[in-house]
Simulated scan of single mutants.
Amino acid sequence: MSAHQLRAHCRDQLRHEIGILTTKSGGIADAVATRLTQTNITKLYIAAPDYENAIISVMKRRFPFTKAASDVILPGKYKSDNYVYSLVDQEISQRSDYFIKSGFSMWSAFVAFFRESMSKTTIDIQDLPGYPEAVRKLHLWMK
């Protein structure tokens, strides 16, 4: 397989998997909502990449106190700097009382590592009751 064919295959696979995430966003949100209710959490910050906007939208509709990177206001020179947004997401996630990490994400694993050193609660989203089986089987990026 040539490098061009490999890139095209990876791009197509990623599109397919993002499509599954989008169609299952309600089930993912339900699984998170169940955990929020069980733990009496009323405020939620979602640190997620842009392709998970469907999940973020569902959570914002269900929980009015939900915030995400799009709600963060940075000083002018940093407004278009995704690295700075990621650092802000990371800091909020590390300091939060509770963190649900994605099993697909090295970024989440990094946050979980620091949280573990502070003895803070972190669980994998795939372990939530009701998490869609179709999403659990995906092999996005760095599983």
Rank of each mutant, 00 (worst) to 15 (best):
T34C: 06
T34H: 06
T37K: 15
T37M: 13
T39C: 00
T39Q: 09
I41L: 01
T42A: 06
K43P: 02
L44W: 07
I46T: 04
A48H: 15
D50H: 15
E52A: 12
N53Y: 10
N53D: 09
A54V: 06
I56F: 10
I56C: 03
S57I: 00
S57A: 01
M59Q: 14
M59V: 14
M59F: 14
K60L: 08
R61I: 13
R62M: 03
R62P: 02
P64E: 03
P64N: 04
F65E: 09
F65K: 07
K67Y: 01
A69G: 14
S70E: 00
D71E: 15
V72C: 13
V72T: 15
I73Q: 14
L74T: 12
P75C: 09
G76P: 11
G76Q: 15
K77G: 01
S80L: 12
D81G: 06
N82F: 09
N82I: 09
V84M: 10
V84C: 13
V84I: 13
Y85D: 00
S86E: 14
L87R: 10
D89K: 07
Q90K: 11
Q90S: 10
E91R: 13
E91N: 14
I92G: 08
S93F: 07
Q94R: 11
R95I: 03
R95K: 15
R95G: 13
S96I: 00
S96G: 07
D97F: 02
D97N: 11
F99A: 02
F99P: 00
I100V: 05
S102T: 08
M106G: 11
S108R: 11
S108L: 12
A109P: 08
F110T: 11
F110P: 03
F110C: 12
F113N: 09
F114T: 05
F114D: 09
R115S: 03
R115Y: 07
E116M: 15
E116A: 13
S119C: 12
S119E: 07
K120Y: 05
T121E: 15
I123V: 06
I123S: 04
D124H: 08
I125V: 04
Q126T: 10
Q126C: 09
Q126G: 07
D127G: 00
P129E: 01
P129A: 02
P129T: 00
G130I: 02
G130Y: 12
Y131R: 10
Y131C: 04
P132D: 07
E133P: 08
E133Y: 10
V135K: 00
V135G: 02
V135T: 09
L138E: 08
H139R: 09
H139N: 01
L140A: 01
W141C: 02
W141M: 08
W141G: 01
W141K: 08
M142N: 11
